[in-house]
Simulated scan of single mutants.
Amino acid sequence: MSHTIALAGNPNTGKSTLFNLLTGLRQHTGNWPGKTVLRAEGELQTDRHSYKIIDLPGTYSLYSNSSDEEVARDYIIFEKPDITLVVVDATSLERNLNLALQVLEMTDRAIVCVNLIDEARRKGVTVDKDKLSKYLGVPVVLISAREKIGVIQLLKTIDQMAEGLIETKPYQIQYSLEVESQIQEMEPKIKQIFGNSLPSRWIALRILDRDEHLLDALKRHVKHPNEPKVDSEVAQGGCCHGA
């Protein structure tokens, strides 16, 4: 049985370098359906499992601001990869963690891959992976895809997550009392429509942001007899929270 891995990350984090390292020549490219956005897929074989890796477009967020962002968001939400590898730049960790936190609102099957640690060390930057992992609630692995540092540990972590041996508790951003109150009010309605198949808290946040593109995507990808309730009942309470 093959597992799926989604590679997510900001542009210029070395994500494509990692994709090439993991897949070698076992890859092919095309376009995402209905988009001009490039889709790259490859295969990874470890000692224990085989994986299909999808290299998502490099983005700074997972909102609906561009086709790249919509493609990356929709894949994580609707295709539900077994593992999402979030590649971040060790030299710009604070800026890169914005995307990582967004991914953690969408899935609990995530690994944060801190790349370019060789550059960080040259600049005198150190990353405490254990402390960062405890804070984020998911595994953190330090690597340099270019120098092939930390790859064995990354592969071990991927296998362990695929086998269900890693328990995660992703960090959840806490918003204002007003926003949290609205989320709590909306979540039961969202779960009534979609059950546990989609992250209800994340959907509530996007509806509060009046993300019309997400509502359209929900209609395209989710077939449910009560689907019209998404924009008729749930979306009535929408307001921007500035996430």
Rank of each mutant, 00 (worst) to 15 (best):
L154C: 06
A204R: 00
L97N: 05
L205F: 01
V140Q: 00
Q160M: 12
I152Y: 09
G9S: 10
N196V: 06
V112S: 09
I183T: 02
H224K: 13
R121K: 13
I117D: 03
V230A: 11
H213C: 00
R121Q: 12
D82H: 15
V112D: 05
P199V: 04
V230P: 03
T23R: 14
F19L: 03
S144F: 00
A204T: 02
A162R: 04
I143A: 02
A72S: 13
L38E: 15
I5K: 06
K129D: 12
G237K: 10
I173C: 02
E180M: 10
S232T: 15
Q184W: 03
K219F: 13
Y135Q: 11
E233Q: 10
P57K: 02
L165K: 15
D216R: 12
K191H: 01
E70W: 07
Q192G: 09
P225F: 12
S67M: 13
D209R: 14
R201Q: 04
V37C: 09
E147L: 06
I152E: 14
R26E: 15
F194H: 03
I207S: 01
I53V: 15
D74T: 08
M1D: 13
D209N: 14
S197Y: 08
K129V: 06
W202C: 09
L218P: 11
Q172A: 07
E41H: 07
Y60Q: 11
L165E: 12
R206E: 05
E187D: 00
F78T: 03
K52C: 10
E147C: 03
V222W: 03
P139F: 08
K223P: 05
S67K: 14
G150M: 04
G58Y: 02
Y51Q: 09
G124I: 10
E69A: 11
I207T: 03
S144A: 02
K134T: 07
L7M: 09
T107C: 10
H28F: 01
K189G: 00
W32K: 11
N31G: 13
K219D: 14
S144M: 03
E94S: 12
G124V: 07
L154G: 04
V88Q: 00
F194P: 02
D211G: 05
A6N: 04
D74F: 14
E119K: 14
L101G: 10
D159T: 07
N196I: 05
E180P: 03
R39Q: 15
T46D: 02
I149G: 03
Y60W: 11
V138L: 07
T59P: 10
Q236A: 01
K15R: 06
E41R: 14
S92D: 05
E43W: 11
R109C: 08
P11S: 09
R201K: 06
I173A: 08
I53M: 10
G24N: 10
L21C: 09
A100D: 03
V151C: 02
Q182C: 04
S67V: 10
D68R: 15
R48Q: 14
G137T: 02
R26V: 05
L136A: 11
L25K: 15
V112H: 04
I190P: 03
T59M: 09
